[in-house]
């Protein structure tokens, strides 16, 4: 219970500061300054934004379907936040008063499927928002989002099968543990070459497919067709204002965080890294560092890449990513059958 509350606050803080980091880094890329007035260098900007979101007037469109209009942001943020209970954010550490504690809130058999299920339920938030707003831009955004998320969910799920095949488990904590000592070198080399145990070196194709489909799944640039501001105003959340808009905004960033966590746990060894064997607490920092790297990658992509066209997006997903993911499964299964 305590764990859930702490994780909740930590995730929301990271999300808040991801938004700030995004604005500052985008500004850097585009030769601007970005928000730097609230607090030192803008560190209090997220709280100022939150205050503004709370104090703004709530507008519900006259023609909206009230029930679904109000339900949509709730579904979006709930589905996004429910995944945080399975993040394995550290190894077993000795806490001052609690004794040895496994740094994961809930460890169960189907953690990976649970995350995939929750993200696929999250689509409803976007679809219902698009439909219930009763606006053409919202509807188009919602339709695009759902088509895109259905398409890329396939390659996302299939790209993870390779890792699951090699690990033999769907439990994220065990997947991370398996990436601790895959190869045996001398003790010194074990320290420095620990990253070689990470799944990314055995599943490079799977990692690339996962990364691309994860960006599409979270509707980020260059796959942000659902909210293409040049054509659809703001896509599915055009008609949302104040805190309800903030919920969608948060849900998007929590989803970014979730796919970063999955990439970290499944491909980049989770909390593993040189020195974790001696100082387990170091694992938490490795974990957060890797996630921050992925979040930075997202922002970087947003600053540099143009947007796809919708038919390009669909073609790319179905005719390239999906066959590549299936090829990856076939190769992995064959190799795993003979060498494991």
């Amino acid at each position: 219970m305590l764990g859930i509350n702490i994780a909740f606050v930590v995730v929301l803080m990271i999300v808040a500061y991801t938004v700030l980091a995004e604005r500052r880094i985008l500004a850097l890329i585009q030769g601007r300054l970005g928000p730097n007035r609230v607090g030192y260098g803008g560190v209090l900007q997220p709280f100022a934004d939150l205050l503004k979101f709370i104090l703004k007037e709530e507008v519900i469109p006259d023609q909206a379907t009230k029930f679904f209009y109000l339900l949509a942001p709730i579904i979006a943020i709930t589905a996004a936040l429910m995944t945080i209970i399975v993040y394995p954010f550290g190894p077993t550490v000795n806490l001052p008063f609690f004794g040895p504690v496994k740094l994961v809130i809930a460890q169960f058999d189907i953690a990976l499927l649970y995350v995939l299920g929750m993200t696929s339920v999250g689509v409803y938030g976007i679809m219902l928002a698009g439909w219930a707003s009763n606006s053409k831009y919202s509807l188009m955004g919602g339709l695009r989002a759902s088509a895109q998320m259905i398409s890329y969910e396939l390659s996302l799920g299939l790209s993870l099968v390779g890792v699951v095949l090699m690990s033999g488990t769907l439990d994220l904590y065990s997947v991370v543990e398996l990436q601790t000592n895959r190869w045996e070198f001398s003790p010194v080399l074990n320290f420095f070459l620990q990253p070689l145990s990470w799944n990314i070196f055995l599943q490079p194709l799977g990692f690339i497919i996962y990364l691309i489909s994860a960006i599409a799944e979270t509707n980020r640039v260059p796959f942000d067709l659902p909210e293409a501001e040049t054509e659809l105003v703001a896509g599915f959340h055009t008609e949302y204002s104040a805190l309800k808009f903030a919920l969608f905004f948060m849900a998007e960033y929590v989803n970014m965080f979730t796919v970063s966590v999955l990439a970290t746990t499944l491909f980049l060894g989770g909390w593993n890294g040189p020195g974790v064997a001696t100082f387990p607490v170091l694992g938490v920092f490795y974990f957060l560092g890797k996630i921050i790297f992925f979040l930075f990658l997202y922002i970087w992509l947003r600053g540099t890449l143009p947007r796809f066209r919708f038919d390009q997006l669909m073609n790319f997903g179905w005719t390239f990513l999906l066959p590549a993911a299936i090829l990856n499964i076939i190769v992995t299964a064959t190799v795993a059958y003979f060498y494991y």
Partner: peptide, 14 residues
């Protein structure tokens, strides 16, 4: 959840 709620019904709603 993944198959029925996340895939089939999404298509129906779509």
């Amino acid at each position: 959840v993944i198959v029925y709620a996340g895939a089939i019904m999404v298509l129906v709603v779509f």
